[in-house]
Amino acid sequence: MNVSEELVNQVLMIVGTGMIVVGALADLVASIGMLRFPNFFVRLHAATVGTIWGAFVPLLGAAFFAAGYSELGPYRWFVAGGAVVTAFLILLLGPVGSHALARASYKSRAAVPKPLIYDALSEKLKEGEEK
């Protein structure tokens, strides 16, 4: 292995390790928020932190780390590709799932929107029913 390739590998591993550690800290923050926030619509914020910063970022970090980790041999590109695919799946599916759940729980009144000052959506829904 020549010197420049080793340098590229080390840079990739440093970036990957940093992203994995950032993801771990974001995960801890999101889980504390998930435990301490008062109700469902506030907890959606913690779910956002946990999905994007806690899953998307460490998956990209794992992809970088695997691309630079020479002990895996040629299979490291397999690991990196799988991690990137999972990262973009989560980037698409996580917000869609959260929005579907929030919409359903608002419309079915399964969770009460507690810190609520003005509810414009319910008026629009009533107008839609009258038309």
């Binding site: 995960d27 779910a47 999905t51």
Partner: peptide, 9 residues
């Protein structure tokens, strides 16, 4: 949901 996404990572 959030736990499983973090678990995938």
């Amino acid at each position: 949901d959030s736990m499983s996404y973090d678990l995938a990572a």
